[in-house]
Amino acid sequence: MLTLLLVRPGATEFDQQGRIQGTLDLPLCDNGRRQTEEALPGIAAHKPTVVYTAPCQAAREAGEMIAEATGAKQKTIDKLCNLNHGLWQGMLVEEVRTKQPKVYRQWQDQPHTVCPPGGETLLQVKARVADSLRKVLKKHKEGTIALVAPEPLASVIRHVLHQDEVTGLWKGSERCGVWETIEVPDEVGATVA
């Protein structure tokens, strides 16, 4: 059985400000580096052999820190770019909530039914994630690997692996610098959708 460590990188300035980051490429802020450093002992205890990262700067920086602490190889998966929030990127979550309350509620309750203006749908992101995960899971049947992805992408990855509901996609700042262990049975690799 494969153990996948799903790691959210530490915070960026946008995370701390409550802004929608999406595909905007921002580095870890000082607090984000500290959050990632605090997570390292727990991640290192699992001894991942490979650290896969989303292509954004924050994920790559966190991945480098993990690879250095564990001696694991680091690889970037370009298709694991974050959800493109289109015109919402850079806005405060609170701005969307007050300016477009119906859309905001719909995004919170039924995110698969909303496409941000100029962005992409959750179904499009899910398809990209599933394709990337199938390739990773084909290479790794056992052992431990780490996958570093920011929110809301990390929630989509979790959803694809668990095949459960996706909710709370704008709670990213609450999840910076945290990680979770996901046991991936062999049969899940074959059914990732």
Rank of each mutant, 00 (worst) to 15 (best):
H140C: 08
L137K: 05
E174L: 15
G119Q: 12
E142M: 02
R128S: 13
H140P: 04
E180R: 06
T144H: 06
V148S: 08
W179R: 05
G189H: 08
H140G: 06
L133Q: 10
T191F: 03
T167W: 08
W170D: 12
V114R: 07
G119S: 13
V160G: 08
C176I: 00
P116K: 13
E165R: 14
G168D: 12
L123R: 14
G177I: 01
V156P: 05
T113H: 02
L123V: 02
D164V: 05
L123D: 15
V160A: 08
V136L: 13
V184N: 07
P152Q: 08
K126I: 01
L153K: 03
V156C: 09
E187M: 04
T113D: 13
L123N: 14
K126M: 08
L123Q: 13
P116T: 07
W170M: 15
C176T: 14
G119R: 11
V125N: 11
L137I: 04
L137E: 05
K171D: 15
K138W: 04
E120D: 12
S173L: 09
V188W: 04
V129F: 05
D186I: 02
K126R: 15
H159E: 15
E142V: 01
P116F: 12
H140S: 06
Q163I: 01
H140N: 12
G189S: 08
E183V: 03
G172S: 08
Q163N: 15
E187V: 13
L161M: 15
Q124K: 12
D131N: 09
G177C: 01
Q163H: 14
T144D: 04
G168P: 07
T191P: 00
S132T: 09
W179E: 00
G118W: 11
R128H: 14
E174V: 04
I145D: 07
E180H: 01
L161E: 10
V136H: 05
E142L: 02
G143D: 11
E183F: 00
L122W: 13
T181N: 02
V129I: 13
V166D: 00
A127F: 00
P152Y: 01
T167P: 02
T113L: 15
L153F: 06
V160L: 09
K126L: 02
I182V: 14
C115D: 02
G119V: 09
K141M: 02
V184F: 00
A127L: 11
W170A: 12
E142N: 09
S155A: 13
G189K: 07
L147R: 03
I145N: 10
P150I: 00
A130W: 06
H112C: 00
L153D: 07
V178T: 15
P117C: 07
G168I: 00
